[in-house]
């Protein structure tokens, strides 16, 4: 039986800090298959980037403890020795980061940087690798790439740098691409270009993509399925249409309602979610969203809900998801502060 591309099962990532152990990711489970784009959304500090870094095992192993499993083509990445991980990183699984300026090395030309991973993983000569680098730059839509490979990161614009990162990440034709806020630092017109490049290449290479973002607009544009995270847990997972049409978790609903809509009623006040995200060293007992939730009952404050799977495949971590469905057309389901 063939394995799915990536299965994350009950992943826990703990950091030991001066103040004690902090669980940044607490029991995250999701799958990504070939040719699929999974969106991981949530606000700052929800653990979406730590999840990605755990999959790549980029975190400092001395102060980080992992739990659960990350099965990549059936192999558990968490139990692999670092030497085996080196063959996977940048080769089978690649990552694009938010800030292309700090992620590129300022003292090497962009050609050198793209060729490096080709030389390491594909055992090509430097000359052949440079040729491939030019090819990759062309694929990502950089004009006159044979000239560009001799330039340094500071000589090119932000959108170009992000394309260089994509070229670098895709140079070994990975099966899985993790994009951590790839367009957050870019302007909208450039963002549109970059999202298009990622989408085209995904189709062409039949890659699985994990798109980490806080922008629900980006999710609607490129993702097939979405996992919403809050305080280290996935609180809702669904295919993208279901998530936007009938979100079942009060937090997802709140998020969707608090964004000003480009086609909404301008005179209407925006919805707000009361309060702020609690700190990770002070996670509420019971449901983590309960203190900010207008549906919360005694039970929510005491007992932590599990991720329930509904008949349509949607998964929700809420005691009251049935009740929330009933109130579907009531826009004020989330109280304004």
């Amino acid at each position: 039986m063939s394995h799915p591309l990536l299965e994350v099962k009950e992943l826990k990532t703990r950091f030991s800090t001066e103040k004690g152990t902090i669980t940044a990711v607490d029991g995250v489970t999701f799958n990504v298959d070939y040719g699929e784009t999974l969106g991981v959304v949530g606000e700052s500090g929800c653990g979406k980037s730590v999840t990605a870094e755990s999959i790549m095992r980029l975190l400092n192993e001395k102060s980080t403890k992992y739990g659960g499993e990350i099965l990549y083509k059936g192999r558990d990445l968490l139990s692999l020795p670092e030497s085996k991980m080196l063959d996977i990183r940048g080769n089978e699984i690649s990552m694009i980061f938010q800030d292309a300026m700090t992620s590129l090395n300022p003292v090497f030309t962009i050609g050198d940087q793209i060729a490096e991973s080709i030389v390491v993983h594909q055992k090509l000569s430097k000359k052949e690798a440079m040729k491939k680098a030019v090819e990759m730059l062309r694929v990502t839509g950089i004009p006159s790439p044979e000239k560009r490979i001799h330039e340094y990161p500071h000589e090119i614009s932000g959108g170009m740098r992000q394309r260089v990162m994509i070229a670098m990440a895709l140079s070994c034709q990975p099966s899985l691409l993790i994009a951590d806020e790839p367009t957050t630092a870019l302007d909208v017109t450039i963002q549109a270009q970059i999202l298009e490049v990622i989408n085209e290449l995904k189709e062409e290479l039949n890659m699985g993509v994990i798109m980490i973002t806080h922008d629900l607009g980006v999710v609607a544009e490129v993702c097939t399925r979405v996992a919403v995270m809050y305080l280290g847990q996935v609180i809702e997972e669904a295919d993208v249409d279901t998530l936007f049409d009938s979100p079942r978790h009060p937090y997802t609903r709140g998020l969707l309602q608090s964004i000003p809509k480009i086609n909404g009623d301008r005179e209407q006040k925006l919805h707000t979610i009361k309060g702020v995200v609690p700190a990770l060293d002070n996670v509420p007992k019971g449901c983590r969203f309960a203190p900010r939730c207008s549906f919360a009952t005694e039970k929510c404050l005491e007992e932590a809900p599990v991720l329930d799977e509904l008949p349509n495949g949607q998964k929700v971590r809420c005691w009251h998801h049935a009740r929330i469905k009933e109130r579907e057309d009531v826009p004020d389901a989330i109280e304004a502060t």
């Binding site: 909208v188 017109t189 963002q191 549109a192 270009q193 999202l195 298009e196 922008d215 629900l216 607009g217 980006v218 999710v219 609607a220 544009e221 993208v240 249409d241 936007f244 049409d245 969707l256 964004i259 809509k261 480009i262 086609n263």
Partner: peptide
């Protein structure tokens, strides 16, 4: 510029001018 804004609503998709 207007067409490049990603809209958080799947039913509101429109032609992009890139």
């Amino acid at each position: 510029l207007l067409s490049a804004i990603p809209i958080p609503d799947r039913k509101q998709r429109r032609e992009r001018i890139i």
